[in-house]
């Protein structure tokens, strides 16, 4: 049974050559699309930076690119990394990145010598400040205690004299009155005078100590903390050129 070719099959047969070319192109595109992508990705590797401190470190890659990324996609090969964070020292290291792999670089940036010296200076400053406040405060508290004791003594002596006066006024015993006038009252008046002098001296010392304490507190509050000049930052800034706001040199990364 002869089958009559359809119009469609005639058309297909006539266009068989262009279709073959089309299929080859399609196959190439598919191969390059599906299998080609992994072939390109395998030229880079991923480097994840785990840095102490983790919040504000910066890195210069290959002496050219300054960034704050935590994950870097790098081409295969050696890469120079210079890491820095405020108050820390620059760590300069070279890492080999394998294509298609992902690895972590764990770095602890050590504190810079200047920062450690600054911390010592701040500590000394705070100790000095504390001492400058504490010593006058202790002196004032001591003087206040002395003044209080002197005042109590003074009040007691005064009360004793008042009692003597009351007894003198109400006594109907001439012998007792003579004893009061000749012995007790003069002795109590001596006590009173002594305690009065002591109260005056202690009050004066207290006043001076309190004034000095107030002054020393005010002076301490006005004294500025020692400033930290991060020379490692200056060094780090100098490692790579950064454009300024106008696109020229002299920009400062911050």
């Amino acid at each position: 049974m002869n089958r009559k070719p359809s119009i469609g099959s005639l058309v297909d047969r006539r266009s068989a050559r262009p279709r073959k070319v089309f299929r080859l192109v399609l196959a190439f595109l598919l191969v390059s699309g599906i299998f080609g992508s992994p072939a390109i990705a395998q030229t880079t590797g991923q480097l994840r930076l785990v840095v102490d401190p983790g919040h504000d470190f910066q890195v210069i890659l290959d002496g050219a690119h300054r960034m704050q990324e935590r994950v870097l996609d790098l081409s295969e090969g050696n890469h120079r990394l210079q890491l820095w964070a405020p108050t820390r020292r620059i760590v300069d290291t070279t890492v080999y990145v394998r294509a298609g792999s992902s690895r972590e670089l764990v770095v602890r940036l050590p504190y810079s010598a200047e920062f450690l010296a600054h911390q010592q200076e701040v500590k000394r400053f705070r100790e000095r400040l504390w001492l400058n406040k504490a010593l006058p405060t202790v002196a004032t508290v001591g003087a206040a205690a002395w003044t209080t004791a002197a005042y109590l003594d003074y009040r007691k002596a005064g009360r004793q004299l008042r009692d003597d006066k009351d007894l003198y006024t109400t006594s109907a015993d001439p012998g007792e009155i003579a004893e009061l006038k000749n012995d007790r009252i003069p002795a109590h008046q001596d006590d009173f005078r002594r305690s009065k002098v002591m109260l005056g001296v202690s009050t004066g010392v207290f006043a001076v100590a309190a004034a000095y304490t107030i002054w020393s507190y005010r002076r301490a509050d006005r004294t500025p903390l020692p400033l930290f000049d991060d020379s490692e930052k200056v060094r780090f800034d100098g490692l790579v050129w950064l454009p300024g706001p106008d696109g020229r040199g002299g920009g400062r990364p911050d």
């Binding site: 009360r159 009155i177 006038k181 009173f192 005078r193």
Partner: peptide, 18 residues
């Protein structure tokens, strides 16, 4: 609050005082 010497001078108001 300081007290003054309450003893008057001279002290001779008591009739039994010499």
């Amino acid at each position: 609050a300081c007290l003054k010497d309450p003893i008057p001078d001279p002290l001779n108001s008591n009739p039994f005082d010499q």
